[in-house]
C-alpha cells in the first residue's frame, strides 16, 4: 500500500466523520434563532458539503484525470 492510498483512506474516514458530525450539529442547531446561528447553519451545511467532496475525491470519483501526454 503506497502513501497515496493511505492518504485516500484517511481522507474518506475523516470525511465521513466530519460529514456525520456536521450534519448532526446542523440538525441540533436547526431551530436556534439569531443572525450568528443562521450564519453558523450555512457554514455547517457548506462544511458537510466539503466533507462529501473530500470523500468523493478520496474514493476517486472526483479529481481523477488521465495522465498528461
Amino acid at each position: 500500500m503506497d502513501i497515496a492510498q493511505i492518504e485516500r483512506i484517511l481522507a474518506i474516514a475523516g470525511g465521513v466523520i466530519v460529514a456525520v458530525v456536521s450534519a448532526i450539529a446542523l440538525k441540533n442547531d436547526w431551530k436556534t434563532p439569531g443572525l450568528d446561528n443562521t450564519v453558523f447553519k450555512v457554514m455547517l451545511a457548506l462544511l458537510c458539503f466539503g466533507a462529501l467532496l473530500a470523500i468523493f475525491a478520496g474514493a476517486g470519483f472526483l479529481g481523477t484525470f488521465p495522465k498528461a501526454a
Binding site: I3, A4, Q5, E7, R8, L10, A11, A13, G14, G15, I17, V18, V21, S22, A25, M43, L47, G50, A51, L53, A54, A57, G58, G63, T64
Partner: peptide, 18 residues
C-alpha cells in the same frame, strides 16, 4: 496537484471546523 494529499488535508481542515 496531488488529489490524495489534498483530500486528506481537506478532511483535516473540515474536521477542525467541526
Amino acid at each position: 496537484p496531488d488529489v490524495a494529499l489534498a483530500a486528506l488535508n481537506s478532511a483535516i481542515l473540515f474536521g477542525s471546523g467541526a
